[in-house]
Amino acid sequence: MPETRPVPFRGGGFNPAGWRWASWIAFAAIIAAWQLSSSSGLLPALFMPSPLAVLEALARLVETGALTRHLAASLQRIALGWAVGTLGGLAIGTAMGIFAVARSIGLPVTSALFPIPKIALLPLLILWFGIGEPSKVATIALGVLFPTIISTYTAIDGVPRNLIRMGQSFGLPAAMIVWKILLPGALPGILSGFRISSSIALILVVAAEMIGAEHGIGAFILAAGNLMQTDQLVAGVVLLSLLGLAVSFGLSRLERWLLRWR
């Protein structure tokens, strides 16, 4: 019997599987290190508040009831602005996904308007909509509109053409093809567009609340910044990112439910 050797194993690796606790541990470690450098004086309070100070600021917000007031004001603006921008974006994006004319007009217009920072348009928005709620909602809606247009029409482009052919072969009217084939087929792309547009809505709430807002998380952050209350500033930012996490969690659940066929 000749000598035998095992075949060397060369597979494995390159397969990052999630480790449940890693993110929590990393998170806790960062906050611990931050608190440690604050309390040891390595990080002066002048430049960065300690996590404890931020926590205290948050607690004060809860105690005074300001939190609900700010959250309610911002959520209302975000929800309304996002809904208006999303509905508009879906309508325009769908038209661009179906009609050549809409696409030829919409594509350059969208490309031209998308990159404009909405903050730059604030003075115009004030002139058009005043300093009340409409201009704030419009700021968010405008920010949400363009990415939604783009994700919608690319998602519609991505719907396999053979499904449309199939619909035609069964004599489905055009409206039915849009409603029963194009839109559900585009749903995965549209939903991932929602992730982007909801983040944009959160980003823009700060810009929207620059103008004449007494309440709102954005207004709170701005005021804290103007007052150099860095603990409150960071507390406001923490609130925004918590809000972002909550929205992302909600969208994941929605995706899992709506796209259970995948």
């Binding site: 604030l122 003075p123 004030i126 002139l127 005043g130 300093i131 009340g132 620059m210 103008i211 004449g212 807002a213 007494e214 207004a219 701005l222 005021a223």
Partner: peptide, 21 residues
Amino acid sequence: ITLKPLQSIPNMSAALKGQQV
């Protein structure tokens, strides 16, 4: 008094001209 923080002098002028305040 309802305070409207408007961030800048031009914004304030605009709000006054537009009778927003």
